[in-house]
Design a protein around this nucleic acid. Sequence first.
DNA 1: GAAAAGTAGTTGAAAGTTCAACGTTTTCCA
DNA 2: TGGAAAACGTTGAACTTTCAACTACTTTTC
Lengths: 160, 160
Amino acid sequence: MAGQNATTPRWLNPVEMKAWRRYIIASRRLLEALDSDLEDHELSMADYEVLAQLSDAPERKMRMSELADVAMLSRSRLSHRIKVMEKAGWVKREACPDDKRGYFAVMTAKGWKAIVAAAPDHVESVRTRFLDHLSKEDQRVLSEIFERVTDSLKENPPTE
Amino acid sequence: MAGQNATTPRWLNPVEMKAWRRYIIASRRLLEALDSDLEDHELSMADYEVLAQLSDAPERKMRMSELADVAMLSRSRLSHRIKVMEKAGWVKREACPDDKRGYFAVMTAKGWKAIVAAAPDHVESVRTRFLDHLSKEDQRVLSEIFERVTDSLKENPPTE
DNA sequence: GAAAAGTAGTTGAAAGTTCAACGTTTTCCA
DNA sequence: TGGAAAACGTTGAACTTTCAACTACTTTTC
């Protein structure tokens, strides 16, 4: 992307700037707040996401790489994180019989208890800190905007 | 926030869920993409933000704590980061004459060159990856939504 | 005007994340 | 069928971020 802007840059006008900055700033603070709310359950957002995904999976287990994809973590990051979560007793690892390279992350009873305890509070956080400020129409507009953003990122992924 | 939900949790309905997840997923990918685009200039988003804020400040210098606030970094994080940026030659530190506890972060000529080189590409990234997918009306709606979200976070800050 | 309380900023250690390299197993295809 | 290439997941090292403690200075309070 470097050096592709020989022409005069199209700087943001005030309205664009406001939309962009408000979005980016609110999003950071929102994430912080959700993370902080989850601390009451000794969970980070990433941990929550991992457990939530596992709890939706058949038999509450999932291949490491699939879990990494749906939880949007790098494989390496997931691998390190699962090591910690395993120590905490929320998940364990299980060799995959079909593919000897592979492993499953399996949610334990303790992990299930943790997510069941955390989920209502987390959903309530998402509501009070975010969804409550959106009308039905806002929800629709937002869904569409971010669908377009995601689609465009897929078409034009960053080159790393 | 823990234990405040003795009542049945108000789970998200499908429309709410879709709005929430699309927003959160697109936002993560968007941030990743912007960060990745900036790598061409050897800058992280945090570094960019620090340099951008400095370049707008009078004399291109700012007190550490003010800089931490506007760039949304903890003081400790800024302190560590400035150490690295100083080594890279983009900023230097300067003792504050009025308050002997204080320091200024001061942008160097090299820092100025770095931000001037990166800004057009970065703005272009923000456009192509985000703003281009928003109509004027979308911009307005988004500004208002995230203003409400920010206001509510101010009224009800996380307790850490 | 001195002690207490608060503010500015840094530090080192602990925890988390990225990156590149690696061993193992599977897939591809000539 | 055999060997190259790709995929799975882990690892250790480097780097980043957080956390709590700390020094140094300033402001408040009585």
